[in-house]
């Protein structure tokens, strides 16, 4: 019953980034080898999308709306955390979408959070959709900001905008997009509202037409700032390819053993910075204000 149907070698995908030259405009950014380790077979797909979000934000409604219930469920390899996988086509591209467990944070050590964190970090999805609840933005931004520390290829899905409207809450999505440095799309997944715009934003980030400059959390304490600078510089020197050295430094300072192991084993060094260079006239730059 499990999703172990593909046990062949992963070489069958000609679009794998290992084969492609760096700087290709439309090449997928994902790391097919690492994805396969996480149980995701990319043979018939062009892009892989991760779906992250707090519990009770309508994340699975978004997932169902995007995949039209064409999904299959299974467990993460070796874990008892369920995952739903599905797919959709948009334009000429086929997107595989992986529903991550709903969590409040990525910094604790619960199994769900570890699974979600590892997928975003080591799976290097082409785009991570972060579903946030428009009626409880502050609480949901906690997770969003943590995801944006790890990956700069993200789209915020500002869901439950209908509920917010009903409560008289308005969210300025443009200002939020400017502040966060990633596209923000208001949706009401239950009514199917805004999903087209979401798909469009996802495809633009996936193909490199939109380049995100995500907001990074500022820390007040000077001691932490200087420690962070020292360590980030060292990591950048040793692993120039790692896209999120600052986040890795943060985790090391927090004593995160999984990350320390990844450094020791060289797993971290396998991650590649993915910066597709799209044609300049198409690029929409999102700068944090």
């Amino acid at each position: 019953m499990n999703d172990k149907k593909n046990l062949q070698s992963p070489i069958s995908n000609p679009a794998s980034p290992a084969a492609a030259a760096a700087g290709c405009a439309t090449c997928p950014a994902h790391n097919a080898g690492n994805l396969l380790k996480l149980g995701v077979d990319m043979t018939d797909w062009d892009y892989v999308i991760a779906l992250a979000g707090n519990p009770n934000t309508g994340k699975s409604t978004v997932f169902n709306a995007l995949t039209g219930l064409r999904q299959h469920t299974g467990n993460w390899p070796g874990k008892t955390v369920t995952r739903a996988e599905g797919g959709y086509s948009y334009g000429d591209q086929r997107y595989k979408i992986v529903d991550l467990p709903g969590t409040y944070s990525l910094l604790s050590t619960s199994l769900d959070e570890e699974v979600a964190r590892d997928f975003i970090l080591f799976g290097q999805p082409d785009v991570t959709i972060i579903v946030v609840d428009a009626t409880r933005l502050e609480r949901n931004l906690n997770l969003a900001l943590q995801v944006l520390e790890i990956t700069d290829r993200a789209v915020i899905c500002l869901n439950l905008i209908d509920e917010a409207r009903r409560h008289g809450i308005t969210v300025d999505d443009r200002r939020l997009a400017r502040d966060l440095g990633v596209p923000v799309v208001p949706t009401a997944a239950r009514q199917g509202e805004g999903l087209d715009a979401l798909l469009q934003a996802v495809s633009e980030v996936a193909t490199g037409q939109t380049i995100c400059k995500p907001h990074r959390v500022k820390t007040e304490s000077p001691a932490i700032q200087s420690a962070l600078q020292t360590l980030t510089a060292q990591i950048q020197q040793a692993f120039p390819e790692v896209p999120n050295a600052r986040w890795v430094a943060l985790r090391l300072l927090d004593g995160d053993q999984r990350i320390a192991d990844a450094i020791r084993s060289g797993e971290l060094g396998d991650l590649k910075r993915q910066e597709p260079e799209a044609k300049q006239d198409l690029v929409i730059h999102l700068e944090p204000a």
Binding site: R139, N142, D179, E220, S221
Partner: peptide, 19 residues
């Protein structure tokens, strides 16, 4: 401290965007 910083940022950003 880290959690406080993240939530402070989250609160600031949410405050700017939400009416």
């Amino acid at each position: 401290r880290l959690m406080e910083d993240i939530y402070t940022d989250a609160a600031r950003l949410a405050d700017r965007a939400v009416t």
